[in-house]
Structures are given as C-alpha cells and as structure tokens.
C-alpha cells in the first residue's frame, strides 16, 4: 500500500521538434496520492510544474488506446498503470519505441494504421450478399469464439513498440495488423483468405515473427497477438501444402427462427448466460 503524498521522480522523455535535435530526459518530482495512475502523474506535472509537457490521451480508462507509453521500459497504457504498482521512487516515462516521435510522449502511429489498412481489415464477400437486406449471416457461437479474442484490440501500439522484429524491419507489418488479418481470415462471413494469404505470406508478413512473445506480454487488453500470428502461420502453411479444409463461407438465415440453437446443441458457457436458457428452435 502506497503512503499518501509521497514524492516520486518522473524521468520523462522530452522532445520539441522546433528546438531539439534529439530527445532528452527531464526529471519532475511528483506528489503522489493513493490510486494515482501514471497518466494522473503527467496531469499533475502539467498543472503544477510544466505546462509545456505534451502527451496524447482521451478516455482515461483503458478503452481508447491513446496513452500507450514506455513506462519503466515496458510499453503499456499510462491510464492503466498505478504508480504504486510500479514500486520504487523513480519512474521512467518515454514515447513508444519503433515509431517516430512527434513531440515529447506523442508517437506517430500513422505507420501502424497504414499497415492495418493494407491487410484489408474488413469483411470481403460477394457484394450482392453484403448489400442484400434478405436475412442475416449465420455464425455459431463456436465460430465467433475462433476470432472474438482478436477483436478486442484498441490499436494502442504497445505490441508494435515491444516487437523485436519491428526494431529494425520497417516493412514488417507487425503484431497489430497481422492480428487483425487473422481476425478477418477466421471470420466465417469472410471470403478474402486468398487475398490476405498473399499479404501475410509475402515480405514483411507473418513469417517475420519469431515468437519472442513480447507483444502478448505487453498487450493491455489480453488480445494475444502472438497467438493470432502463430495460428495465421499454421493456416498459411496448411493452405500451401493443400492440407487446409476449404472454408465454407457462412450462409444467410432464411427467415425468423432459422439458425437458432438446436435443443441438443451445447453452446459455450461463456456465450450464454447460465440462468437464461437458450431459446430452442421448435
């Protein structure tokens, strides 16, 4: 338990593109109270010590993914990090590595967003199927589970900052875009595997991942990009060896009641609330 109002040294990376040739470290003494996060600490600095300190944030509750920073050498969300949990009287706060610094603690995430867009993170399906208002796509709870974990990504860039391959390889897509790629490849509504297989199997694709595991270790949302990439490699290799079972895109429901859980079908415990039994299809 942290004592109230103790002083903690914040060693913050500063960089002003108008004045500085390279980043430098500035130390602030922050009065820390119980329950204070690193983000709160930065606010305290801005209010009490230095109004010129710049960082990016929005929601303050681990949802928006804006405040990814390198805190004590580890990429994580500033809003999600309790100062008391870090221990010690010194905290280093820097911008996420493997991105360009715009100013102080603000990385330019555009390179990640460009790579994300390049993996076609959207349902690829026959246009007629998509625009037709006749019925919804049917997807079983099990089929949903196959990719649901990977949809929790908030694009904070922590995995990209932790990845050793991205430390040198500018062309490597990186954990976040490849996880999005796997997420859509696994979606039964999607028919874009062949298009994405070319992207994922090419230069800078999934095979530049060597399972150092840092992305999964630092992910603040438990998305586990390393798992997604290994499952992606498996699919690519099986597809190359012609051992993959051909994915049948899911069908549309034919009308009210069609596609609901059958009486003898056990849905995954997570998906259905235990005290509300699933409706049966009579």
């Amino acid at each position: 338990m942290a004592e109230s109002n103790k002083i903690v040294n914040f060693h913050v990376t500063r960089y002003n593109p108008e004045k500085d040739v390279k980043p430098y470290i500035q130390t602030y003494k922050v009065e820390v109270t119980d329950g204070m996060t690193v983000l709160d600490g930065l606010h305290w600095i801005k209010e009490h010590l230095d109004p010129t300190l710049v960082w990016r944030y929005s929601c303050r509750m681990g949802i928006c993914g804006s405040c990814g920073m390198l805190i004590n050498g580890s990429p994580t969300l500033a809003c999600n990090t309790q100062i008391s949990h870090l221990g010690g009287m010194d905290i280093t706060v820097g911008p996420l590595p493997n991105f360009e610094i715009i100013r102080d603690l603000v990385p330019d995430l555009a390179s990640m967003f460009d790579k994300h867009a390049s993996v076609k993170p959207n349902i690829i399906r026959d246009e007629a199927d998509l625009v037709s208002r006749q019925g919804e796509f049917y997807q079983s709870p099990e089929q949903l589970e196959e990719f649901l974990q990977f949809t929790f990504c908030i694009k904070c860039g922590c995995c990209m900052a932790a990845c050793p391959t991205l430390a040198t390889d500018v062309r490597y897509l990186g954990p976040m875009p490849l996880t999005a790629l796997q997420r859509y490849n696994t979606d039964t509504r999607d028919e874009g595997f062949d298009i994405r297989a070319k992207i994922a199997g090419g230069d800078g694709g999934a095979f530049s991942c060597h399972y150092a595991g840092e992305c999964s270790r630092v992910c603040p949302k438990g998305v586990d990009p390393a798992k997604a990439i290994q499952l992606l490699k498996r699919k690519l290799v099986l597809d190359y060896l012609h051992l993959a079972s051909k994915k049948q895109p899911c069908k549309k429901l034919e009308g009210p009641g069609h596609g609901k859980l059958l009486p003898n079908m056990n849905p995954p415990a997570r998906t259905v609330v235990q005290d509300a039994p699933a409706e049966t299809n009579k």
Binding site: S74, L96, P97, N98, L166, A167, V218
Partner: peptide
C-alpha cells in the same frame, strides 16, 4: 525512435 539491432535484445519487458 526505432530501436535498431539493440531492440532485438531489449525493447520491452
């Protein structure tokens, strides 16, 4: 702010 070859060794936790 790319870490370079040193980033193969360090970089994150």
């Amino acid at each position: 702010n790319r870490l370079g070859v040193w980033g193969w060794l360090g970089g994150g936790r």
